[in-house]
Computed example of a mutant assay.
Amino acid sequence: MSAPLPIRTERRSAKVLRRIALGGASLGLAATLAVAGSVNAQASPPGFNRNPDAQAKQAGISAGGGGYAGWAMKSQLSKSTASSMQTTPMATTSTTVDGMDVASYQGDVEWPTWYSRGVRFAYVKATEGTSYTNPYFNSQYTGSAKAGMIRGAYAFGRPDGASGAAQAKYFIAHGGGWTADGKTLPGALDMEQNYTDSSKPCYGKTPAQMLTWMKSFTTYYWSKLHRHIPIYTNISFWKTCVGNTTHYGTTNPLWIAYYGKTLPAMPGGWNYETIWQYSGSGAADLDRFSSGLTQLKKLATAKNS
Rank of each mutant, 00 (worst) to 15 (best):
P253A: 05
L254R: 14
W255C: 00
W255L: 01
I256Q: 04
A257N: 07
A257P: 02
A257F: 09
Y258V: 00
Y258W: 15
Y259Q: 06
Y259N: 06
G260D: 09
T262Y: 08
T262D: 10
T262S: 14
L263H: 10
A265C: 00
A265V: 02
M266I: 12
M266V: 11
P267K: 07
G269R: 06
G269F: 07
G269L: 08
Y272G: 13
Y272F: 14
Y272I: 11
E273P: 08
E273N: 12
I275H: 06
W276V: 07
W276N: 04
Q277R: 12
Q277D: 07
Q277A: 08
Y278T: 02
Y278S: 02
Y278N: 03
S279M: 08
S279Q: 08
S279K: 12
G280Y: 03
S281K: 01
G282R: 12
A283G: 08
A283W: 08
A283D: 13
A284M: 11
A284Y: 14
D285L: 11
L286I: 11
L286C: 11
L286K: 11
D287R: 03
D287Q: 13
R288W: 00
R288T: 03
R288I: 02
R288Q: 11
F289E: 01
F289I: 01
F289N: 02
F289C: 04
S290H: 08
S291R: 02
S291T: 07
G292N: 09
G292A: 10
G292T: 03
L293R: 12
T294E: 02
Q295P: 00
Q295V: 00
L296G: 05
